[in-house]
């Protein structure tokens, strides 16, 4: 659901009058055309009209469901035929704990075993705050990215549940890779519940901070970046990170410019 529709209630006849100012036929529509904000919704007494109220609830419900629908690794496996996929879980046992304890979402569940690979790169598909975003855009972006990195050795793909971005540090360290890219669902807003973010970290290990990562956000075709656009930016960042031996603020300064809104 996007912006509001026409106002549902009629005008107050006591305050209507002729139109010497020569306004367009529906000035409320004209006001709405100027912004995505929910302006000129009309009123039912001092509240919103039913139709406008329900539009808002539709958008909020989509965002809520995007946060709470569980990640389904089978969906991701089916969309990644021919690729080896490992599954891990963070130390947050359930969604309620995940939402309240970001520290647990950054650690692997006790007893998690991942094989050391010595590969150049690991790609993690993580639920984050929108499993729906990973379902819809994770496999497409992962495939587009790996297609652009023919010279790189790649560890098995990892699907991570109840994961924060920094869980990629623990995964990357366990796999013994030089770089990790975490594809993770972003916090849903009312206008977008399926936006994916991609975070690149060179030499991943627990304790890395956000300033040591590069981010490409708003992967959400057709409204945001396409998979191909995001993959091209990530591949360029990875190549630059390999030359520099680092990611994050240093890389952003010397590497290719990120597309607008991708920082």
């Amino acid at each position: 659901m996007t912006g509001p529709g026409p106002a549902a209630t009629g005008p107050d006849p006591a305050v209507t009058g002729p139109d010497p100012a020569g306004l367009p036929p529906d000035p409320w529509a004209a006001l709405r055309s100027l912004t995505r904000a929910r302006v000129a919704l009309g009123r039912a007494g001092d509240a919103l009209p039913t139709a406008r109220e329900l539009e808002f609830r539709v958008a909020h419900a989509a965002a809520r469901d995007a946060v709470h629908a569980p990640l389904d690794p089978a969906v991701l496996r089916a969309a990644l035929p021919g690729r080896e996929v490992l599954e891990v879980h963070s130390a947050a046992p359930d969604r309620a704990t995940y939402l309240q304890r970001p520290d647990l979402g950054r650690r692997l569940a006790e007893g998690t075993a991942l094989p050391p690979t010595g590969a150049d790169l690991a790609v993690v598909l993580a639920d984050g705050l929108s499993p729906r975003a990973v379902h819809e855009h994770g496999p497409g972006l992962a495939t587009a990215l790996l297609d652009r990195l023919p010279g790189w050795s790649v560890a098995p793909l990892v699907v991570a549940s109840q994961a924060r971005v920094a869980l990629g540090d623990a995964i990357g360290a366990a796999l013994g890779v030089r770089a990790v890219v975490v594809l993770i669902g972003e916090r849903p807003g009312l206008s977008a519940a399926d936006s994916l973010g991609a975070y690149l970290t060179w030499d991943p290990r627990p304790g890395r901070v956000d300033a040591e990562r590069n981010c490409v956000s708003n992967v959400r075709p057709p409204h945001g970046l396409t998979h191909e656009q995001a993959a091209a930016t990530l591949a360029a960042l990875l190549t630059a990170a390999r030359e520099l031996g680092a990611s994050g603020v240093a890389l952003k300064d010397e590497g290719p410019a990120l597309p607008a809104g991708a920082g």
């Binding site: 209630t9 005008p11 107050d12 006849p13 305050v15 209507t16 009058g17 002729p18 139109d19 100012a21 306004l23 529906d26 000035p27 409320w28 009309g42 009123r43 001092d46």
Partner: peptide, 12 residues
């Protein structure tokens, strides 16, 4: 606060 028609003087 009144609910105004778009052609009410104040709204205009």
């Amino acid at each position: 606060v009144r609910e105004l028609a778009a052609d009410a003087p104040a709204a205009r």
